[in-house]
Every structure is written in structure tokens, then in C-alpha cells.
């Protein structure tokens, strides 16, 4: 994450357009992949240090594939709000504990104070504030998770679901006309060192 030299703003803006708050906590940055144009707000925590320790491929016939140490991969136009926490899920694998990667698609919004330990999150996903996404949850594309939802571990949420509650349940369907609302391009422009006003 090379900063594009001063002026010292609140955000570090990378060459690929990521805007990372100086006050965000990124641990193990070498294991965190950002797709570009992603916003990480102050006090967000990303645990790239919780990297996978057991590789299924390493067991079978020598080190054929180079080990991929990505702990968290984040697509384009994602928005990580204040105080949210991304943490790779972990479990026992053949008797030993290991973390597994957390993968996120494009246009994923994570609300303030939410904790995410999913195995995968698709594209065009909105996670409201104060939510908990349990370990190894799988969230497909075009999903809206309302504020304060607790998604239990291992839950699969299919596309076009509106989810709420503790534990989470599908309470509705994203209507056909609601797809565009997941776009985060405009939101991206409203933060950073030169924020633009929100368009009408």
C-alpha cells in the first residue's frame, strides 16, 4: 500500500484507487488483497495475519502449487465502514486448527461495527450496521442484510435475499428494480481526501 506522497489526508489513496484510512488497523497486509477502489474507513480491522496454516495440496505429492497465502481478498468498490472487523474463519482440519480465506466480491458494503467471518461473500452485497456474519457463512450475490442481523455459522444465503433477525432468516426478496441500489461507485466518491458531494 504505497501512499501517493503527501498531502497527509485522513486516507491513504493507492494507485489502484483504494482509500485506506490511516486510522484503520490492517494486520498482515501482505495477506490482504484489495481489488481497487475500495474504501476502508477509520477503526476498521482487517485480520490478514490469520492465515491458513494447513494446505490440502501440500499433503499430496510434494509442493506442486505455490502456496497462496491470501487470508482476505476484497474485490472492487467495497466499502468497509467504521469499526467493522473482517476476520478469516477457522476450524479443525484433520485434527489441527487452521484459518481459511475470506473472499469478498465487488460492491460489498459492510456497515459500521459489523463483524464478518464468512467464507465467501458475493458481489453486490449490503451488510447493515452492527451485524455478525458467522464463521463459514456463504453469502451469494445481491443480498441485503439488515442492521443488527446475526447470521449463524455455516448459513448459506442465496441471491436476492433480504435477511434479518437473530438468528438470521430470509424475510424478503430483493425486487427486480432494486439491483442498482447495490452499486457503490457513487459512495466511493464521497469519501477520501477530496470527497465529492453525493450525487442526486
Amino acid at each position: 500500500m504505497s501512499s501517493r506522497r503527501p498531502p497527509r489526508g485522513e486516507y491513504i489513496e493507492t494507485d489502484t484507487g483504494n482509500k485506506v484510512a490511516r486510522k484503520a488497523t490492517l494486520v498482515g497486509t501482505q495477506n490482504i488483497m484489495l481489488g481497487g477502489k475500495t474504501v476502508i474507513q477509520p477503526d476498521a480491522i482487517i485480520r490478514g495475519d490469520l492465515v491458513r496454516t494447513i494446505h490440502p495440496s501440500s499433503q499430496s505429492g510434494g509442493n506442486a502449487a505455490p502456496q497462496n497465502n491470501t487470508a482476505i481478498s476484497i474485490g472492487r468498490y467495497c466499502f468497509l465502514s467504521r469499526n467493522c472487523c473482517l476476520r478469516p474463519p477457522g476450524r479443525l482440519y484433520k485434527g489441527a486448527f487452521t484459518y481459511m480465506p475470506l473472499r469478498m466480491g465487488d460492491h460489498v458494503f459492510i456497515g459500521a461495527g459489523s463483524v464478518v467471518q464468512a467464507a465467501s461473500i458475493g458481489s453486490h452485497v449490503h451488510i447493515g450496521a452492527g451485524s455478525v456474519i458467522g464463521e463459514f457463512a456463504i453469502i451469494k450475490d445481491y443480498v441485503r442484510i439488515l442492521d443488527g442481523t446475526v447470521v449463524p455459522p455455516n448459513m448459506v444465503i442465496p441471491s436476492f435475499s433480504i435477511v434479518a433477525g437473530q438468528p438470521a432468516r430470509v424475510i424478503g426478496e430483493v425486487p427486480e428494480g432494486g439491483h442498482e441500489a447495490f452499486e457503490l461507485r457513487d459512495l466511493y466518491k464521497t469519501v477520501g481526501n477530496n470527497p465529492q458531494p453525493a450525487p442526486h
Binding site: 477457522g90 476450524r91 479443525l92 484433520k94 485434527g95 486448527f97 463459514f136 455455516n154
Partner: peptide, 12 residues
């Protein structure tokens, strides 16, 4: 921790 072990290879 174990409950988060859905897939068969991990089902011990």
C-alpha cells in the same frame, strides 16, 4: 469451534 466444520473431509 467444531461446529464450524460442515464439509465431509472435516467431519471427523
Amino acid at each position: 469451534n467444531l461446529l464450524a466444520a460442515p464439509d465431509n473431509s472435516a467431519t471427523p
